[in-house]
Design a protein around this nucleic acid. Structure first.
Lengths: 109, 109
DNA sequence: ACATAACATGAACACATGCTGATATATGCA
DNA sequence: TGCATATATCAGCATGTGTTCATGTTATGT
């Protein structure tokens, strides 16, 4: 690689542009809160309704709703409707993989 | 797997214990700030002195020092001394890998 | 011992973040 | 239409976070 292949990949030697920096930090910020981790962890294998998450994790409905909006803005979760119920599930394999790896790592593996 | 193999691995179905939750969230929190990302990104291939980082990234020395302490507490960076100069380098391959992957991912790869 | 260079630390400030109770919206059904 | 269920949104509050200036600490050289 003689010249920099700018743009085609993460040019690890170049400075990070504002946008990349923002997206990356937001992504990690999403995983940097215990409540959001618990929610994503719960969504690992199954989909859950908002109230279902709240009950399972002992959280207020509004708290769950707020965090789900956060996660949805980052496309980390999605939902499908069934009547008045919204079933949430994860929507980013890469992020879920990182989360799983890091949990494994932290569990004194 | 009949009974839960508690403790031997990340039991993804079990509830997360407090300690794991804390460690994982702290780790991601470390990567959730633009300044720390820029610092770690800079340390990808080379070691740098504190002032070197400050100059390269246009940050105050105290800002860099504060963030390095944060990263060092989490064992994400280490340093070696040479006279009065401290050369910092990264110290967690797993985290650096995640960072690289996520930067790649964000660069519209 | 003194001065200097390199870095760490502390206090204060502005700002962001997460949670909560109350209220609004949306859907389904009688 | 009216009511109930499920979820979203809002405003307020307490707490956490990042930066900065000022100062402290450590190591080197004279």
């Amino acid at each position: 690689m003689e010249e920099s292949k700018k743009g085609t990949n993460a040019d690890i030697n170049a400075d990070l542009d504002e946008e990349t920096l923002f997206v990356v930090s937001q992504t990690f910020k999403a995983l940097g809160d215990p409540t959001r981790i618990r929610i994503l962890h719960l969504l690992f294998h199954n989909e859950y309704a908002v109230n279902g998450i709240a009950e399972k994790l002992n959280l207020r409905q509004s708290t769950v709703s707020h965090q789900l909006r956060f996660l949805k803005n980052l496309r980390l979760v999605k939902h499908r409707r069934e009547g008045t119920t919204l079933y949430y599930s994860h929507d980013d394999e890469h992020v879920m993989d990182m989360l799983k790896q890091t949990i494994d790592h932290a569990c004194h593996s």
